[in-house]
Write a protein that binds this DNA or RNA. Structure first.
Lengths: 172, 172
DNA sequence: TATTGTTATACTCTATAACTATA
DNA sequence: TATAGTTATAGAGTATAACAATA
């Protein structure tokens, strides 16, 4: 999990040019220049997303839940009785890969599969009492440690702006 | 690469409650409710980032460059002669994993490793002429197809706001 | 002794094909 | 025949330990 903490993705100190020289020869030491990566949305998105997930994992470490597992539990809570195909596809998880994921959650008694009486091919998936309880605790940890830290850094205005922009990007 | 195109992460149509009933029983059909995932920055970040990378890959498909390979080429252009450890760590890539990545680029004659005369343990990595050329073409494709599509969707103001917020989040 | 590049390895994610049981 | 869940499998991506050459 602990990767080599990479540089600060800083936009600062653009290193003044030697005035006359063309094609700046690049520094021979010190931090590297990111060049156009600084303004490449995909690059910045990826790096930021990794940091956010790292923090999420750290914040709910006591409950041993990954971001993906958390997202499944949230979906089960809000949509009890839906089948595996529906849950998986909503989260962008391929059905074959969702099987072992559910196995993990079910073996921990956080959710259960129940053969649907209406269509015996499918499973109605739902949280157990323990699943509800763990999810509630996870939400509290996320709100108190993870989201609050993000909010403190961003401020209410930028957090709202970010969510609005992310929503806009859902059409991308 | 082509995953099951997941739902629209929409924030719309919150499904009016039946007025008196408590604990809304959740829809029995139709799209699932995302619940608190709608406002979970990490979740929205991840989904958006995947879409952005998919588009990037599609846009530079003719040059067969992944986002990671592109980022290496950009870094080599701006920082010629740096060693593998420096390049890799700047991009958050672990040194062992960077070896095969460089092998791939070098076998395509896009870059070359040169034993440093000052420290014969290390390699000075630099773009070849072909590497410069491919990178220039890649940048044009990214600007003309990828970034322009993002900009069209976001608008200048939101693009700038997003980059500013991402920069703020680099301290996270 | 410490560092650079490297190999080997393992674990997670993601992706596709194909099977079974139901419909 | 089509669909839900499943198995098997393959390929990325990511992580750690350890080795040879060099400092």
């Amino acid at each position: 999990m602990a990767n080599s903490r990479p540089m600060a993705v800083s936009r600062a100190a653009p290193r003044a040019q030697p005035a006359r020289k063309e094609a700046a020869p690049a520094a021979e030491s010190g931090p590297l220049q990111l060049g156009e990566l600084s303004e490449l949305l995909g690059y910045q998105f990826k790096r930021t997303q990794l940091r956010i997930f790292e923090d999420f994992i750290r914040c709910v470490a006591s409950l041993q839940l990954t971001p993906a597992q958390f997202s499944v539990l949230v979906l089960l809570e809000k949509n009890p009785g839906r089948n595996q195909t529906e849950i998986a596809s909503t989260l962008g998880i391929l059905r074959p890969n969702f099987v072992s994921m559910l196995d993990g959650l079910e073996s921990r008694k956080l959710c259960e599969r129940i053969r649907s009486p209406h269509d015996r091919r499918s499973h109605q998936v739902m949280l157990t009492e323990k699943g509800h309880s763990i999810l509630a605790r996870a939400k509290r940890l996320v709100a108190a440690k993870h989201e609050s830290r993000l909010n403190a850094l961003l401020g209410d205005a930028d957090r709202a702006a970010l969510l609005r922009i992310l929503d806009k990007l859902s059409a991308f």
